[in-house]
Design a protein around this nucleic acid. Structure first.
Length: 220
DNA sequence: CCATTAATTGGCA
DNA sequence: TGCCAATTAATGG
């Protein structure tokens, strides 16, 4: 895949508009596990995901990690700190899988907002959704079991990028290791492994391969 | 193949 | 559930 396309944040813009934005930034490819920016660093650019999977996360001094958000094709980040005066990245960011991003300098982002009001509208919508998502995940982490949270995550993945077959099973290519899922759900890798094993045994999911899982939407 | 990294498993707090 | 340790499995040169 090459160049910016009218997906995600750019939805609704004309080819000319896209090309204008394209000239303001540059493409950058990252290898799997490559750091994109660190928390507290000067916020010099915003990123638009063209291909791959990227995470923003927080990490404590012991090295424990918590993935705040996952971004894939069409997503734009960071959201936090976008409209305020703080020009520091709010979290660390790394590519989970090999990724291609469009990098837009911070100064150009202001121009883009000014030139394309529709992107501001998208921002409002995305911020609202992200806010609800975070609150939902937070309350789940307090009120629900790890199993429930992992199942919710799998459902979300299947809705977003799953390929359902006529047999009721939905194939998900998530590009994540179980370690990644653990960091997203907020549990240890051992717990993820055990929950998945239980889902397999109960025929609610099937292991297709590493980074691929098939889920039974009806029983999940 | 071998060296790494990821995933699994059992035991115990 | 978490943490540790011991294995086993999968991956990538």
């Amino acid at each position: 895949m090459k160049g910016l396309q009218a997906v995600g944040w750019l939805e609704g813009l004309s080819d000319q508009d896209i090309q204008w934005i394209e000239r303001q930034g540059a493409y950058q490819s990252y290898q799997a596990r490559e750091t994109i920016f660190l928390q507290g660093e000067e916020l010099t650019a915003y990123f638009f995901v063209l291909e791959g999977l990227v995470s923003t996360y927080h990490q404590n001094e012991e090295g424990k990690k918590w993935i705040a958000s996952l971004f894939s094709r069409g997503d734009f980040f960071p959201h936090v700190g976008l409209m305020n005066q703080q020009h520091k990245y709010p979290a660390c960011c790394e590519a989970i899988a090999a990724s291609t991003l469009f990098v837009l300098p911070r100064g150009s982002m202001d121009d883009v907002f000014h030139k394309f009001p529709s992107i501001r509208e998208h921002l409002t919508v995305f911020l609202t959704e992200k806010s609800q998502e975070l609150i939902s995940r937070f309350s789940d982490s307090v009120l629900e079991s790890a199993s429930h949270r992992l199942v919710s995550f799998l459902k979300k993945l299947s809705a977003k990028s799953g390929n359902q077959g006529e047999d009721g099973w939905c194939l998900i290519s998530h590009d994540m290791t179980e370690q990644d899922m653990a960091e997203y759900i907020g549990v240890t890798p051992e717990t993820i492994s055990r929950i998945l094993h239980r889902l397999y045994r109960e025929s609610r999911a099937r292991k297709v391969g590493r980074k691929q899982i098939s889920v039974n939407l009806k029983r999940l």
